[in-house]
Design a protein around this nucleic acid. Sequence first.
DNA 1: ACGAAGGTATGATGTCTCTCATACCTTCGT
DNA 2: ACGAAGGTATGAGAGACATCATACCTTCGT
Lengths: 115, 115
Amino acid sequence: MRGSRSYDRSVSSFHPDRDQLLVEHVLAALGNPVRLSIVRELASSPGERTCGSLPLEVTKATATHHWRVLREAGITRESRAGRAKAVSLRRADLDQRFPGLLDAVLAATPPAREP
Amino acid sequence: MRGSRSYDRSVSSFHPDRDQLLVEHVLAALGNPVRLSIVRELASSPGERTCGSLPLEVTKATATHHWRVLREAGITRESRAGRAKAVSLRRADLDQRFPGLLDAVLAATPPAREP
DNA sequence: ACGAAGGTATGATGTCTCTCATACCTTCGT
DNA sequence: ACGAAGGTATGAGAGACATCATACCTTCGT
């Protein structure tokens, strides 16, 4: 009857295993301003976020592309929540696999303005 | 006579100031296997290295391209040493600007092989 | 002054990335 | 069953990137 499992009916989208993450892929995925801003946003509030709640300056289709890159690099996890998609940072996996990396990236400040 | 200054006659190649480094550029530059291997190699031995002493599986022209990307992202510093080029990691600059980032990247291990 | 060593510049080529518009699919509410 | 909301798929275009071959430039040694 299809109401027995109310949630997360396996989106059939690929998520790499924690132990298979490649630092090159993670770095390349983070090395893009749009994706970095998504990651910062996810990090700023705990738990899941629906994709629609993330401020984005690109179209829906482009956003889908960036979410995919983050997911396939192992940086985010996606699941379905009703008709929305929920995204969350794979913080524990990243911290275990690449200790300090995410924290260092999140701590990075913009360049100093010269007076 | 041209022998008065024996060294480093300013290669006229651009090096960004420490305070102007952008984490996006650094991450993107590190997010490439060839460049990451260069950085690992530089980190493994202190001080400068001549470019020729770095093991590379690409042609000279391609190597020049990668050195440039690393330099322009602020990851390496280049100077001339005779007819060779010396490259070094800007470790102090990176550590000050993005504390922990380089260490985390260098500490990253390859993915586990599943048995 | 010559030649070799070590890099750089240029241009070509193929691939990947980012972006969008459009059309579609799913799920929820009614 | 319908329509709206929220994403995805596909295809196209512009630009960036990685790679190479070739030709060139500098510096050192002789």
